[in-house]
Simulated scan of single mutants.
Amino acid sequence: MLVALMTLSFVPSLRRSRRRPVRFDPDRPYQVYTPDYDLEIKASDLDAVLATLPDRRWADRFPEVDPGQLYDLEKDLAARRTRMRSSQAEDSTAFDAADTIVALLIDHSGSMRGQPMLFAARAALVASDLLDSLGAKQEVLGFTTARWKGGQSREKWLADGQPSHPGRLNDLLHIIYCSAGEKLSAQRCADMLRPDLMKENIDGEAIQWAASRLRRRAERQKYLIVLSDGAPVDDSTLLANGDRYLDHHLRHVTSEIEQAGDIRLAAIGISHPVEQYYRQGITISSPEELEEALVQLINRLVHASP
């Protein structure tokens, strides 16, 4: 996310406004120029959705990531569950698993492409197995945008004469890999590795989306864990609203959730200090550390006293 996408050769060249970047106004409320082109889909629908998007050839420049180790990991976890079934059953008595749901929200920005996303998928698969063994429900979600540097939202804004301070100017793409009552599979994790999937990231709205899904659930103990590798970035939005626009909104969203107290919010940052956004933030130095960090975080959260 911290990568300067505008300087990378693989980013599609889209029409630009001739306006200079505007100064960020912290007193101006966050807004969405239009939600008409936002998408919320199941992972099983990714093929159909991504096939309709323009500028797909840039993804051909990136090598495919072999998902084979995800399927191997799934087999290893199943074998481990068989060997350790009794001890895990004892662990599940430490909290009210039937009244607990944990949502994992994974950043799908361009900088997560390749090995970082592979390790994130592995961590999600391990976390899903852990939660299933404990008897807690789970959701695994991903967030990105449909296009680079603004999609149909930005095109509408251009056609409308580029009114000032338009708000968010890209089309959200939110993906459901695993809904409450389901267990994540290696096949669904493999969908995370698509090179044509990961683009820009609008974290604040993604967290609001994940939180709204949790708030519709009946479970009393709700947890939302975010995996991220940088600050929110969408070039089209920042150019038209100021360079702190998405960062400011993310801070506002996390603060509101933490103050409300109905959802326990936490995050793991990959070489990115998420403590600046989340009270319960953990920074790790490399994606390889994700599995262990996520398992430890889940255990600490669900076994902590309310």
Rank of each mutant, 00 (worst) to 15 (best):
Q162C: 08
F95I: 01
A240R: 07
W148A: 04
N241E: 10
S185G: 00
V126T: 08
D196S: 12
F143K: 09
L158W: 01
S212A: 11
S212W: 10
R168H: 11
I268N: 07
Q88Y: 15
T100C: 01
I176K: 10
I257E: 10
K75V: 11
L39I: 14
A59T: 13
L294A: 02
A123F: 04
A121I: 05
K183F: 05
D235L: 03
R85W: 06
H165R: 11
A120H: 12
G242D: 08
R20N: 12
R220S: 10
G181F: 03
N201L: 14
A51I: 01
F95V: 03
C189K: 02
T93Y: 15
R61H: 12
R220W: 13
E139M: 12
R80T: 15
E155L: 03
G150T: 01
A4D: 13
S179K: 03
V22H: 13
P21Y: 12
A218W: 00
D55F: 04
A159F: 03
E90T: 14
T144V: 00
S305G: 06
L70S: 01
N170T: 10
V22N: 14
D96P: 08
E205F: 02
D235N: 02
S228N: 11
V49Y: 04
S44H: 03
G142F: 00
T254D: 08
R19F: 15
E40M: 09
V102L: 06
L294F: 05
P273G: 00
K199Y: 07
Y37I: 00
A123S: 02
D25H: 09
E292M: 07
K183G: 11
T237M: 01
A123M: 05
E219H: 02
E288T: 12
M198L: 13
M84D: 15
S236I: 05
W58T: 07
I263E: 07
R216Q: 10
A120M: 09
S13T: 12
S17K: 08
P63E: 00
S212E: 15
H108L: 14
Y278V: 04
P232F: 01
I225K: 03
R251H: 02
